[in-house]
Design a protein around this nucleic acid. Structure first.
Length: 635
RNA sequence: GCCGGUGUAGCUCAAUGGUAGAGCAAUCGCCUUGUAAGCGGUUGGUUGGAGGUUCGAUUCCUCUCACCGGCUCCA
């Protein structure tokens, strides 16, 4: 709600003003913006533009959750006197606070903290903003043993700082906050974790408590439901339950074993990629897994990523297990003279690479040490660069949509510290990426300094079925590696020229994408991706020949079909098929055998009995061919 | 790598210093089944690994490996 304040008067605060003039807003406003400045509701009224921010406003949520973090800090201070406070911000969907405690917290402590927080909200302590001299603040926090706050204060240059006080609890904070602890309504502490002070692994490890807070019970419940959904969709669990893949302690962490059903799905994904690359004029290449170290010195990767590369020595020569495909593709480019007429030259490889990832970061399929990228390198002239980037982007969006993703966020990452190449090269590359995005009308955000050492990049993040964002495709523009490797093409002027290079992946790491896909669909894959598409269920043994006949018929059409010939009840077989998330269960008994029909049931439990088998086959095949989410029996 | 947690049958979980157990799964048999669990029998373990304390260790201690939640990192 936006108001123009004409006569602020003296000594009025925003809350009082709002309460008297807009009683319908009573209790709803969380924070305010006055003349574009985010402030507490207790701030003094000023003339000009006043906005009352309610829960619907992102900024109000932040204030609300930030206050939740303060209340949590107060609870921790009360329960664990002597605790030192680190950072305590609001984050997406919640908040956290970092503590330095003598002993480590347990889940039971978490409950106690939450309980104490509820008590603090009941006390309904007013939250008061105070302005202190910086030196006074330093003295105060030093005396109370808050070393981290003292360190923060030392970095602040202003002569005055703001302090928030609620009861006995005092914290250095920019604010703003709720007006009192009683205004925090629904919250829940979620988990405990370690976190480095200021995110620096050389600094002390603090204990972080994560929580979430909402304005009404329904939203909190919905959020908690979302968290449980995330657990239900966990690809590690589904991978085991559906027998898709496994990891083995004996083989080492971070390397994936695809079981038959997982391998089928991987083959589908790779088949899609090969076909789509071919359509778009890419040439498929295959490069080895082992190169001499020399090549990685030349590329610069050893300078930047030596820690993450698997290297070894044989016959006095250093070797590297490839962590990337680009040098290999460059060698192919360099294997013969290239003409401007050859460009753009597009090499595509399902390239399996190995990168040493620190043990603590491994996570199912989402973060592994060995993975396969749908990697391509486009060699082109500088003039072709932008158009080629555009094509890469369109290809990426097309592919993601095909797999069922609709919602994306796009980031342009610019030159990082310590990168290679000239300013001019970086400007040209960044410019080409930005122009490509603009020509396609894609909204994007700039991520300053987040580019790769040899060039800037575009990252596409995808949103899954329950709203989570995942890192997906990336497109990088590069003038540096061509220079390092000294690759050229002969121009129309008969002179050598330096090509530009695009590094890009579409689904990126296949393992990772597969993991995302499993979570997106919660294992309930559409027909074209399902490892087993149809399960045939004979009612009794005498129906087995008919089931076999159908199996052969469907399999001949390319469908992945199985017959459940267990000596079990139909109920049990249906249950098994449901739990395996097979898209179609086909029950055949006397009626079907006699009429030559089928009775099909989908995962949602809907079934159609006595369907013509041709009609069934046509609809099933159409769903596969058109990659539809559900099956249309009528069309 | 760091902080915290966990590790018992294929899976989910019991057993607080005294003979390792249940359900499901698997397997065998009976049943011949009509849209989410038919009935009965059987099998299944170096309690992640190594060392230690103890008369005795799943249980206590040390080391180690893997996994989980984060942090840091991610070409």
């Amino acid at each position: 709600m936006e108001i123009t304040v004409e006569d602020a008067g003296k000594g009025n605060n925003i809350q009082d003003f709002a309460d008297s003039r807009y009683p319908e807003m009573a209790g709803k406003a969380i924070a305010a913006r006055i003349n574009d400045k985010l402030v507490d509701l207790t701030a003094a009224l000023e003339e000009g533009r006043l906005e009352l921010l309610t829960w619907e406003d992102e900024r109000a949520r932040e204030v609300y959750r930030h206050t939740a973090s303060h209340i949590m800090a107060q609870a921790v201070m009360e329960l664990f006197p002597g605790a030192k406070l680190g950072f305590g911000p609001a984050i997406a969907d919640g908040f956290y606070y970092d503590f330095d405690l003598a002993s480590s917290l347990s889940p039971e402590d978490l409950e106690a903290v939450e309980e104490r927080m509820r008590e603090i909200t009941k006390r309904d302590l007013p939250i008061v903003r105070e302005i202190w001299g910086r030196d006074d603040a330093i003295r105060f926090f030093k005396e109370s043993g808050q070393d981290y706050k003292v360190e923060l204060l030392a970095d602040i240059e202003d002569a005055e700082v703001s302090i928030y006080r609620q009861g006995e609890f005092v914290d250095l904070c920019r604010g703003p906050h709720l007006t009192s602890t009683g205004r925090l309504r629904y919250f829940k502490l979620l988990n405990l974790a370690g976190a480095y002070w200021r995110g620096d692994e050389k600094r002390p490890m603090l204990q972080r408590i994560y929580g979430t807070a909402f304005y009404d019970q329904g939203e909190l419940d919905a959020h908690i439901y979302m968290l449980s959904e995330a657990e239900r969709r966990d690809h590690r669990r589904i991978g085991r339950e559906l027998d898709l893949f496994s990891f083995h302690e004996e083989a080492g962490p971070g390397v994936v074993f695809y079981h038959p059903k997982g391998a089928v799905q991987r083959e589908i994904i790779e088949g899609f990629l090969k076909e789509e690359h071919r359509k778009r004029g890419y040439d498929m290449v295959v490069t080895p897994h082992l190169f001499k170290g020399q090549l990685w010195h030349e590329s610069g990767h050893l300078d930047y990523y030596a820690e993450n590369m698997y290297t070894f020595e044989k016959d006095g020569v250093e070797y590297v297990v490839k962590p990337m495909n680009c040098p290999g593709h460059i060698l192919i480019y360099r294997s013969q003279p290239r003409s401007y007429r050859d460009l753009p030259l597009k090499f595509f490889e399902l390239g399996t690479v190995y990168r040493y990832e620190r043990s603590g970061v491994l996570h199912g399929l989402l973060r592994v040490r060995g993975f396969t990228q749908d990697d391509a390198h486009v060699f082109c002239t500088e003039e072709q660069l932008e158009e080629q980037i555009r094509e890469c982007l369109e290809f990426a969006f097309f592919s993601l949509r095909t797999f069922g993703f609709e919602d994306f966020e796009v980031f342009l990452s610019t030159r990082p510290e310590g990168s290679v190449g000239s300013e001019e090269q970086w400007d040209k590359a960044t410019d080409a990426l930005a122009k490509a995005l603009e020509h396609l009308g894609i909204n994007y955000q700039v991520d300053p300094g987040e580019g790769v050492f040899y060039g800037p990049k575009i990252d596409i993040k995808l949103r899954d079925a329950i709203g989570r964002l995942w890192q997906g495709p990336t497109v990088q523009a590069d003038f540096n590696l061509p220079e390092r490797f000294g690759i050229t093409y002969t121009g129309a002027d008969n002179q050598p020229h330096r090509p530009a290079m695009i590094h890009r992946v579409v689904l990126a790491g296949i393992e990772r994408f597969y993991g995302i896909l499993i979570e997106h669909y919660a294992g309930e894959f559409p027909m074209w991706l399902a490892p087993v598409q149809i399960i045939l269920i004979p009612v009794a043994d005498r129906h087995l020949p008919y089931a076999r006949e159908l199996e052969e018929l469907f399999r001949a059409e390319g469908l992945r079909v199985e017959v459940d010939d267990d000596s079990q009840t139909v109920n049990m077989k249906i249950r098994k098929a449901q739990m395996q998330k097979v898209p179609l269960s086909v029950v055949v008994g006397d009626r079907e055998v006699e009429a030559g029909t089928v009775s099909a049931r989908d995962r949602s439990g809907h079934d159609i009995r006595g369907m013509d088998r041709e009609q069934f086959l046509t609809a099933a095949l159409r769903s596969v061919r058109e990659k539809t989410l559900s099956i249309d029996w009528e069309a």
